[in-house]
Design a protein around this nucleic acid. Structure first.
Lengths: 328, 328
DNA sequence: TTGTAGGCGTTATCAA
DNA sequence: TTGATAACGCCTACAA
């Protein structure tokens, strides 16, 4: 910046003003400075700017996996809304490990973000303490809780899966199996929803685990096989998500198992593939885009002083019925 | 930090040392300081640290879309390798626009990253100038060029698609259509590979565009319909990627079109779904994980002074033949 | 409209 | 092994 100032024959402060609040600088000076900036290829140092102004313009987001379809829309909405408000998104992966989440949260807090978005409501004690102490808005997403660290924007995995299960029950399915992972917090919630709905009607439940990667198509295939082996008369399976459900549907095509004639298949998430499968996949649509957008709004409003948002924001979900279960 | 120093009865410098180079501090003092840090919940301010030490420990990565499967493995490998080396990944989306890429690059350079990873070799002139001027290692990925800004780690989209096309030609296919987008630089390269291979054997080519989102399954469906309409005797289609190819295969199932009996279908990328479709999808496997890992190695070595890497690193590709094309 | 002084929280450097 | 001092590059506050 001093180079630019010297070259342009003005003070460093004037250069700073041309960048931050150009309106305060005489047009002539402003143009001269801008030309000099351009000529020298000067890029302002945000690090120094952050320190001096005590504003990082960072919003941190910590998600299990950047690549999961279900987070994709949320990240996109979050990112574009925040970008428009002048914030940069600091994105971190946790690969579905709470310890890794804690480490990422710690590292990110060191960058002094102005707000932080995390996925889920399940965190290590230290991670929770860190977030609480940070004093910045913390938005938990993709799930609900009565006791958010600060604000939660999401839907109930448990209620959603219970609702889906009840739909199957009203269609006369009785031997319904749930196939999911064992570790993922959202998977556990989904399982509980299933168990609850089965318990309500006094049906015996069968819940299978497919190991560490319940969101792979191959997990759907092995889950399907396992279910048919343990309970040959299984008439419906609810999978952890649409990827594993898609794996199962494609496996049924190969094995000559009719869906929904022989067995009903449901997923979770309403991924792109759900509508294109044969038969189309009955699933739970998560309004990821809305969650990301709403989270961004909460942040922007909070940081600008206003705070018209409740602490618990239920975005809801939709049951999307397609042909992978029988009609009424 | 001063709070910690005061509480522990040492100087700020000692606290700093406990964090940066604990070996230099007497064990007794170190433990005291650590306990105090823990008690106060102190999180070091990386912003100030960056400024003082002139090291950001940031590596910036600018990719078209965090959610594209093809980048997922690369980002994961990059991220984990860099994390292990003590760097943080600053991840940015460009949503496939070069202008947006330029803006992101500018903003990221302001954070003074120590290296930068970008996707592709096609950038605006200003983006190139910015990257060149920055003086940091710049790794272009997912494509190849003879004239990288600094270093390129990738594979040739053109050669890969030409190779795939030639495979179809050796199987006797003659009326081969390419279905892709129009804007994406990698899509353009792929199209050129196709056109070249067709020209080599003097066959007339038909290349279709499906608009802005060639990587959606629905683009595959519309591309398939368009191809059959414009050239009813089409015997093979190469799609922009595995998502659009998957859409086409599923549409063929519905329409009663036999694959590969009536038509052969190929994709690009070897996404998870490729192996599970019926029939399995013939495609080009991109070694994304290797690209991410190699990019990270180049960065780590460069930043540690060594530089044993060439400027052009071809990771190659593999043709994965499955049943969506006829056998020899 | 522009310039000057001081400080943001940390680390490098040198001294003790 | 520890501490004091001066940066790092910018912004806030105030002065001219």
């Amino acid at each position: 910046m001093h180079d630019v100032a010297r070259e342009a024959g003005v003070s460093a402060q004037t250069v700073s003003r041309v960048i931050r609040s150009p309106g305060l600088v005489k047009e002539e000076t402003r143009n001269l400075v801008r030309a000099t900036i351009e000529r020298l290829g000067y890029v302002p140092d945000s690090t120094a700017s952050d320190l001096a102004s005590n504003r990082s313009r960072f919003v941190a987001a910590v998600i299990p996996s950047v690549s999961m379809s279900i987070y994709e829309d949320a990240v996109r909405a979050l990112s574009s809304e925040l970008l428009a408000a002048g914030y940069q998104l600091l994105l971190g992966n946790t690969e579905y490990s709470l310890d890794s989440e804690e480490a990422t949260i710690f590292a990110f807090l060191g960058r002094r973000p102005e707000a932080m978005v995390v996925v889920g409501v399940d965190h290590t004690d230290r991670a929770k303490a860190l977030m609480r102490q940070s004093g910045i808005p913390i938005i938990e997403t993709m799930d609900l809780t009565d006791t958010p660290i600060d604000t939660v924007v999401g839907y109930s995995n448990k209620v959603a899966t219970a609702t889906l299960t009840r739909l199957l029950l009203t269609r006369g399915y009785k031997r319904i199996v749930f196939v999911g992972g064992e570790e993922d917090a959202r998977g556990i919630e989904r399982r509980q929803g299933y168990l609850q709905a089965m318990a309500e009607v006094d049906l015996s439940a069968l819940s299978l685990e497919t190991g560490d990667h319940p969101s792979l198509m191959s997990a759907g295939i092995s889950g399907l096989k396992k279910a048919l082996e343990l309970q040959p008369r299984t008439d419906a399976i609810i999978f952890f998500n649409d990827a594993s459900a898609a794996g199962a549907i494609l496996e049924c095509q190969r094995a000559g198992i009719q869906v929904p004639g022989d067995i009903a298949i449901c997923g979770f998430g309403d991924f792109e593939v759900a509508a294109h499968l044969n038969p189309g996949l009955t699933t739970v649509r998560i309004l990821s885009h809305d969650i990301g957008k709403r989270a961004a709004q909460v942040i922007v409003d909070r940081l600008s002083g206003a705070d018209p948002h409740p602490k618990i924001i239920d975005i809801g979900f939709e049951i999307i019925e397609r042909c992978s279960i029988r009609e009424k």
